[in-house]
Write a protein that binds this DNA or RNA. Structure first.
Length: 751
DNA sequence: GTTTCGTAAATTTTT
DNA sequence: TTTACGAAAC
C-alpha cells in the first residue's frame, strides 16, 4: 500500500480495527485481546495520521513497551508510508522521557549530561546512606529499602506521605527517611534513576506551566501501547501531555497486566474513561494468532480471575493440536524431554527451530534447559537474563564514559577507579570520599587535586591524580571524537586486553565482549538523529542505560528461551511453558494475596496466548532448589484447563532408556508405574485437586526435619487444614498427625 | 595497615 | 554476578 495507505488500509482490517484506525480526534481506549492485531492497528493509525490527515510525524508521541517494539513499529510505519517518518517520537516511556529531559534538564537543576542510574548504582547510594546512619543492613536490607522507595516513587508518594503510611513498620519508616537524602545525592551527582525519568517531567510541568503548554502543543497525538502496564506516574504523564488536545489513543488488555509488582496499575484503564470523558471504547476480540484449542485453554484459565473488564477472544482457526501436558521426574528430565520433542518436530520438518520458544517463570530455570538443548545439539538463544550491557567488563568501560560525559557521576567514578585495580582500595576510597565531601567537590574534582589529600598515602594520591588526568584527557577528546574512538583510547590507556587476559580463561570471553562493545559503539557513532541536539556520546550512554532484556536481537538462529515476562507481546508457532508447579508458577511468594495469585494467572494467560499452533505445558514432580531436590505438585493453574483439550504425556518413554545408563533418576520414580502415568494421579482425588491440595499419596515415603523418615498413612482435611498422618520409622516417634502447611515435609528419596 | 584475591551465599518477574 | 568475609600478599 506504499504511498497510499488511505485507500488501501480499510480493506485489510476488520470492522473494529477499522474503527480504531479511523478514530481521529479525542480519547479512545482500545481493549485489545491477545493476538488481535493491535500492532497493526497502531502502525496503520500512525501512517493514516501522517498520510491522510497531514499530521507532521514530529507531533506524534508513541509509547511502546520495549525499544525493540518501537524500532519495529517505526519500520512498519515507514513501509506503509513508503518513507521514513522523520521526527516521530516513538519509544519506551523511559527513553522518551530521557529524551525530553535532555532538553529540559537545566530548568530542573540538572545538566543535560545527566547520568541515568541503574538499579545497582542506586543501591550503592542507598547502602552508603544506611551506613552513614548506622542502620545495620541485616535489619534494613538495602534491596528492600530500595524496593519500598521505588514503589513509593512509582505511586508518586512524597517522603512525608510514605512516612504517614509506615505505621510501626521500621523498614518503611527508614525508607521514608532516606527518600529525600537519596534524591539529594542523585541531584548532586547529576543523576536520575528509572523512576525519576517519570517524575522529573511531571515536576517540570508543575513548576513551568509554559513548558507544559509547549510540549502539549507539540505532541498533538499520543499513543500508548500496553496501557495496562503503566504505573501511576506514567499515566499522569500521559494525562499531562494529552491534557490539551485530548487525542490520546490507549491500547491495552487488562488480562495481560503482569507488572503490578513494579507499580503498574490496571486501574489506569478504568480511570482513563473517567479522566477523559467522551472516551470511545473499542474491543478487539478477534484473535488472528492461535488455534481454537489454544484459545479455549487460555480463556478457561483466565476466566478464574475476578474483576475483569470482560472480553472473549474468537478465532477463525478451529481445532488444532491438543495441548500436550508433560509430567517429568525433575527439571533435568523435563528439559531433556522438551529438547528432544522440539528437536524431533523440527527434524520432521513441521516447524523450524526459529518458530519455537521455551518459556519459564524464573531465569534460573534456563540452566537445565540450556544444558539439555546443548546435549541434544539444538541451537538456541537466550533472551534477557544477563543483558549485554550488564556484563561486568562492559559496565566497567561504560562507567568511564559516564564519568567523561558527567563529571559529577560519583558512582561511575567509584566503579571505574577500581577497574582495573590501581592500588586504591576500599579503605583509601572511604577516606577519599570523606575528604571530597568535606571539600564539597565531586570525586573527580577531588581526584584532580588529590596531592593535597593528606591522610592518603602517596601512591594512592598519585593513582587518583593519574586517573583524573585520564578522564580529563578523554573528555577533551570527546568534544570531537565519536564514542568508539574514546573507547579505543580508553582500552588502550588502561591496557584492558592484558588485564582481562590475565584473569584467566573467562578473560578471553570478556575481551570478546569488549570488542563487541566497540563494534556496537562504532555503529552508534554513525547514527544521525535528525531533530536531536544530543551528542553521540550522550545518546550512546542513554541507549546503554535503557536497553531492556527483550531488546537484544542478535543471533536469531535457533529456538528462543526467555521468561514469561519478556515474552509479552511476542508470538511463536510452538510454545512450551515449563515449570508448571505450585510454588514456582504460581510463585509461592505471590500466593499470599489474591491479587498476587491473579497476576500470576495473567502471566500464565500471557504464556498460553503466545502460541499459534502448538502448546506444551510441562511440570516436574521434583525440582532442585538451592541444592536439594524437593517434591512438587502440579500448578493449580492446570486444573482450569478442560481435559478435552489436553493430551497427557509423561517422560516415562524416556525412562526405559534412561534407567540403564543414567543414575540420576529418583528411586521412587522407578516404582511408580512408568507408562501412561496420568498427571492427575498426584492428587488424591478430584475434590482435593480442585482445592489445591498437595499431591501427596498414601504409601509415599516422606522425611521430616525432626522425626526422620516415615510412610504416609492417610490424609484428611482440605487446603490449609490438610492433615497427613505419617508412621515414622523411628518407633519412639510412631504415628503423627501433621498439618501439611506447616510440617515442611520432604519426599524421602532413600539413598 | 591496606589491597587484593579466593570462596561462599544469594538471586521472581525488569524499565 | 555481586556482595560479604577471611586470608594471603604488598
Amino acid at each position: 500500500m506504499t504511498g497510499s495507505p488511505g485507500r488501501e488500509w480499510a480493506r485489510t482490517l476488520n470492522p473494529e480495527q477499522r474503527e480504531a484506525v479511523a478514530h481521529l480526534h479525542g480519547p479512545i481506549l482500545v481493549l485489545a485481546g491477545a493476538g488481535s492485531g493491535k500492532t497493526r492497528v497502531l502502525t496503520t493509525r500512525i501512517a493514516v495520521l501522517i498520510d491522510e490527515h497531514g499530521v507532521p510525524p514530529d507531533r506524534i508521541f508513541g509509547v511502546t513497551f520495549t525499544n525493540k517494539a518501537a524500532g519495529e513499529m517505526k519500520e512498519r510505519v515507514a513501509r506503509l508510508l513508503g518513507r521514513d517518518p522523520v521526527g516521530l517520537w516513538i519509544g519506551t516511556f523511559h527513553s522518551l522521557s530521557a529524551r525530553l529531559l535532555r532538553r529540559e534538564a537545566e530548568r530542573l537543576g540538572f545538566s543535560r549530561q545527566f547520568t541515568i542510574f541503574d538499579e545497582d548504582d542506586r543501591l550503592a547510594v542507598i547502602r552508603r546512606l544506611l551506613e552513614q546512619r548506622s542502620l545495620p543492613p541485616k535489619l534494613f536490607p538495602p534491596r528492600a529499602v530500595q524496593a519500598v522507595i521505588s514503589s513509593a516513587k512509582n505511586r508518586m508518594l512524597s517522603a512525608e506521605q510514605l512516612a504517614a503510611q509506615a505505621g510501626f513498620d521500621r523498614l518503611t519508616q527508614v525508607s521514608a527517611e532516606l527518600m529525600d537524602p537519596l534524591a539529594a545525592r542523585l541531584k548532586e551527582q547529576n543523576a536520575m534513576d528509572f523512576d525519576d525519568l517519570m517524575l522529573h517531567p511531571l515536576r517540570l510541568f508543575r513548576e513551568h506551566p509554559d513548558r507544559l503548554a509547549w510540549w502539549r502543543e507539540r505532541f498533538a497525538f499520543l499513543m500508548v501501547d500496553e496501557f495496562q502496564d503503566t504505573n501511576r506516574a506514567q499515566y499522569e504523564l500521559i494525562k499531562a501531555l494529552g491534557g490539551r488536545h485530548r487525542n490520546v489513543f490507549a491500547v491495552g488488555d487488562d488480562d495481560q497486566s503482569i507488572y503490578g509488582w513494579r507499580g503498574a496499575e490496571v486501574r489506569n484503564m478504568s480511570d482513563f474513561q473517567r479522566d477523559f470523558p467522551g472516551c470511545v471504547l473499542v474491543r478487539l476480540e478477534e484473535n488472528y494468532r492461535s488455534t481454537q484449542t489454544i484459545l479455549d485453554a487460555a480463556n478457561a484459565a483466565i476466566s478464574r480471575n475476578s474483576g475483569r473488564l470482560g472480553k472473549t477472544l474468537r478465532t477463525r482457526r478451529p481445532g488444532g493440536e491438543p495441548v500436550t501436558v508433560v509430567a517429568s521426574a525433575d527439571e533435568r528430565d523435563e528439559a531433556e524431554w522438551i529438547a528432544r520433542e522440539l528437536a524431533r518436530r523440527a527434524s520432521a520438518g513441521e516447524w523450524a527451530l526459529e518458530d519455537m520458544a521455551i518459556l519459564y517463570r524464573t531465569n534460573s530455570q534456563s540452566r537445565a534447559l540450556e544444558e539439555a538443548l546443548r546435549r541434544a545439539g539444538v541451537a538456541y538463544r537466550i533472551v534477557g537474563a544477563i543483558s549485554f550491557y550488564d556484563r561486568r567488563e562492559v559496565k566497567d568501560l561504560l562507567a568511564y564514559l559516564r564519568l567523561v560525559a558527567n563529571p559529577s557521576d560519583d558512582e561511575g567514578f567509584l566503579r571505574a577507579v577500581v577497574a582495573p585495580r590501581r592500588g586504591v582500595g576500599e579503605t583509601s576510597l572511604d577516606t577519599f570520599r570523606a575528604l571530597a565531601a568535606g571539600w564539597g567537590k565531586s570525586l573527580l574534582e577531588a581526584a584532580r587535586i588529590a596531592d593535597r589529600a593528606t591522610g592518603l598515602r602517596p601512591n594512592v594520591r598519585e593513582a587518583l591524580q593519574r586517573f583524573a588526568e585520564l578522564i580529563d584527557r578523554l573528555r577533551e577528546r570527546s568534544r570531537h571524537a565519536a564514542p568508539v574512538l574514546l573507547l579505543e583510547e580508553l582500552v588502550q590507556a588502561i591496557d584492558y586486553e592484558a588485564t582481562l587476559r590475565a584473569e584467566g580463561p573467562d578473560g578471553l570471553d570478556r575481551w570478546d565482549n569488549v570488542k563487541e562493545l566497540l563494534a556496537g559503539a562504532a555503529e552508534w557513532s554513525e547514527i544521525v538523529v535528525e531533530d536531536d541536539d544530543t551528542t553521540p556520546l550522550e545518546r550512546f550512554l542513554a541507549e546503554a542505560a535503557l536497553v531492556s532484556a527483550a531488546d537484544s536481537s542478535q543471533g536469531t538462529d535457533g529456538l528462543t528461551l526467555m521468561t514469561l515476562h519478556t515474552a509479552k507481546g511476542l508470538e511463536w508457532p510452538v510454545v512450551a511453558v515449563t515449570g508448571l508447579e505450585d510454588g514456582l508458577f504460581p510463585l509461592s511468594r505471590s500466593l499470599e494475596t489474591q491479587h498476587g495469585l491473579e497476576e500470576e494467572r495473567r502471566l500464565f494467560y500471557v504464556g498460553l496466548t503466545r502460541a499459534k499452533d502448538k502448546l506444551y505445558l510441562s511440570w516436574a514432580r521434583a525440582r532442585r532448589r538451592g541444592g536439594d531436590l524437593r517434591p512438587s505438585m502440579i500448578s493449580r493453574f492446570m486444573e482450569a484447563i478442560p481435559d478435552a483439550l489436553i493430551e497427557e504425556k509423561s517422560t516415562a518413554s524416556l525412562w526405559s532408556s534412561k534407567r540403564v545408563s543414567g543414575g540420576w533418576l529418583a528411586p521412587w520414580e522407578s516404582v511408580t508405574a512408568p507408562r501412561a502415568t496420568p498427571v492427575r494421579l498426584y492428587a488424591i482425588n478430584e475434590d482435593e485437586l480442585n482445592q489445591d491440595a498437595p499431591r501427596l499419596i498414601r504409601g509415599e515415603r516422606v522425611r521430616h526435619r525432626r522425626f526422620g523418615s516415615g510412610t504416609v498413612q492417610g490424609l484428611a482435611g482440605v487446603g490449609k487444614d490438610l492433615k497427613v498422618s505419617v508412621l515414622f520409622d523411628d518407633e519412639t516417634v510412631g504415628l503423627k498427625q501433621l498439618l501439611v502447611a506447616f510440617a515442611a515435609l520432604e519426599r524421602d528419596w532413600g539413598e
